[in-house]
């Protein structure tokens, strides 16, 4: 695998170079991806301003959650955008995936590395800027520990999203028409993670902390970042549980992907 890493880095570099050959296009994509985040955040800020607070959270604190979610999504999509159902169907439909299978590499490594999408770096950066701005307004005093928690939240949420995309891609090999269901999963989940979970009541809260780990990956570490007390009974060490949960998601995604490939090789297109 170590010697393979070099190959995948080269593939990823080739993909970035290919995009960089059209710099104007790259800049426009990059900026528009960042701007979308800006517009959505502005919308949330305007809306939250009317309420003053949601479940005891001030608008700026909510926006921190929002920003963390965007950053994680950007990070996951830099590598995982190509796993979206429509892109995978396209690879299958055009026969590109058959060619990938004739290469002496892992199909997943090939697909992810070959279709690295730098556009989502724009989304990532805009998300990070949002976090910094909102944290400042929320009066967060950054410490290495808090920065670490924010990074943990982003990394784990990104891993979960990537795992879900991976599973969806595996599923796509079977159905080749999963687009809508998957988008509901990703963006619906994203939406939930962007609001404080207290509004969902205590029974559902428990369900969401475990059932929707995006909420776990961002919400719980964010409590630490904002220096807030979580709801009663939520211990501080729970934040670190994000890592194994995210790992489990990635592992399940990987299994689904492999099952999808086995199905594809068994049936063909």
């Amino acid at each position: 695998m170590a010697e393979h890493a070099g190959v995948y880095l080269r593939l990823a570099a080739a993909s970035v170079r290919a995009t960089a050959r059209r710099p104007a296009y790259l800049v426009v994509r990059f900026l528009s991806a960042g701007m979308i985040v800006g517009i959505e955040v502005a919308g949330v800020v305007l809306m939250l301003d009317r309420f003053g607070s949601i479940g005891g959270w001030r608008p700026a604190e909510v926006v921190v959650l929002f920003g963390l979610a965007f950053t994680a999504q950007g990070l996951a999509l830099v590598f995982g955008d190509t796993l979206e159902a429509d892109k995978v169907s396209e690879l299958v439909r055009r026969g590109t995936f058959d060619q990938v299978l004739t290469r002496p590499t892992s199909p997943l490594g090939w697909v992810v590395a070959s279709y690295v999408d730098t556009r989502f770096v724009g989304r990532m950066l805009a998300g990070a800027v949002t976090v910094a701005w909102a944290a400042d307004r929320a009066g967060v005093a950054w410490t290495p520990g808090r920065a670490g928690l924010a990074a943990l939240a982003v990394a784990c949420a990104a891993t979960i999203i990537f795992g879900v995309l991976l599973a969806a891609a595996g599923f796509t090999f079977v159905t080749v028409q999963g687009s809508e269901a998957v988008n509901v999963l990703i963006y619906g989940g994203q939406y939930l993670a962007s609001y404080p979970m207290q509004i969902y009541g205590s029974a559902l809260r428990f369900v969401f902390v475990w059932v929707i780990p995006i909420g776990l990956a961002i919400y719980v570490p964010a409590l630490g970042v904002l220096g807030r007390q979580g709801p009663a009974g939520l211990p501080g060490w729970l934040a670190w549980l994000s890592a194994p949960v995210a790992g489990a998601f990635a592992a399940l995604g990987g299994l689904a992907w492999r099952a999808g490939i086995r199905h594809y090789v068994g049936t063909g297109s």
Partner: peptide, 9 residues
């Protein structure tokens, strides 16, 4: 050809 090249089982 796909079976010979490992694309199909």
């Amino acid at each position: 050809v796909k079976m010979m090249s490992g694309i199909l089982l």
